[in-house]
């Protein structure tokens, strides 16, 4: 089993409108097994397009114009993502890769219980499971994300925002994927709740060994949670290194600019000039 989970080579995405927008340009990166890779950059830099594009989640007019994405499955098989047909892609998405969206906690069905919505995932993707097995799996998931099995019969509105986001993480975790893509998963949450969820994500990935691609505009947060960080600008990765080296020894000028653009909680840099 190789150390790399996902190899992205020379990957480009174009929004085929007039004029065409090159959202991601010739990106090459290797995502390691079990690591949290942070994608940073200003809005419009292509970080979201890249993260969605490698799962081919973008709808037309987005088109992948070059490059390859190879998923090195735990079974040893290499999957060429760009060559998958639509139905293979659907299976690939939940089984191997899952998503946690920004504001996902508001996308739960308000008239169905938490438990039944989690069960749906198994019903669709693991049809061989019996009712009892499905139920057992859901209870286990709710315990794993510390929502608690007693919430099985709760409706989404009975849970706080943080709890609902945990349910979304449970849903993403349901089929034990090897990669989770998280798009601003904690942006709408208060800082205390945000911290708890981040801790949990970090703990879960150690427990289950999945890799995480974490997208956020909150650079301080990203620096803390990520193992490695890719700084993007105009669709290209300008710098990719460990969080520590990005912090202590940024090479690219743009990285330096980004790092100096936020006020530090305890440090002296990034001051408002008063």
């Amino acid at each position: 089993m190789s150390d790399t989970l996902l190899s992205v080579r020379d990957f480009s995405v174009v929004y085929d409108v007039d004029p065409a927008v090159e959202a991601v340009r010739n990106v090459t990166l290797n995502l390691r097994r079990g690591e949290i890779l942070g994608l940073a950059g200003e809005s419009g830099c292509g970080k979201t397009t890249l993260a969605y594009g490698v799962q081919r989640l973008l709808k037309a007019p987005a088109v992948i114009t070059s490059g390859s994405v190879v998923f090195h499955d735990a079974s040893g098989e290499d999957i060429d993502v760009n060559a998958l047909e639509a139905d293979e892609m659907r299976r690939f998405r939940w089984d191997k890769v899952s998503m946690v969206f920004q504001g996902a906690m508001n996308s739960l069905n308000p008239v169905a219980t938490i438990g039944s919505q989690l069960e749906d995932v198994f019903e669709v993707h693991r049809p061989s499971l019996t009712r009892a097995q499905r139920r057992e799996a859901v209870v286990e998931l709710l315990e794993i994300v510390k929502v608690g099995a007693q919430r099985y019969r709760s409706f989404p509105h009975e849970l706080s925002g943080g709890m609902r986001q945990r349910v979304m993480i449970a849903m993403a975790l349901a089929l034990r994927p090897q990669l989770m893509v998280m798009d601003e998963p904690t942006t709408a949450l208060d800082v205390l709740v945000q911290r708890e969820i981040l801790r949990q994500i970090s703990a879960l990935r150690h427990e289950f060994g999945f890799s995480v691609v974490f997208i956020t505009h909150d650079l301080p947060l990203l620096l803390e949670i990520s193992d490695r960080i890719a700084i993007m600008r105009d669709g290209e990765i300008v710098e990719l290194d460990t969080a520590e080296r990005i912090w202590h020894d940024p090479q690219d000028d743009y990285t330096k600019t980004l790092l100096s653009s936020f006020p530090r909680l305890t440090g002296e840099k990034g001051m408002v000039l008063r």
């Binding site: 081919r56 989640l57 709808k59 037309a60 088109v63 992948i64 114009t65 639509a86």
Partner: peptide
């Protein structure tokens, strides 16, 4: 989109090497 060979209802991003 259709003229460009894309279908807006596709759930999978089209791959079209330039």
């Amino acid at each position: 989109m259709k003229k460009k060979g894309l279908n807006v209802n596709d759930t999978v991003t089209a791959v079209r090497p330039a």
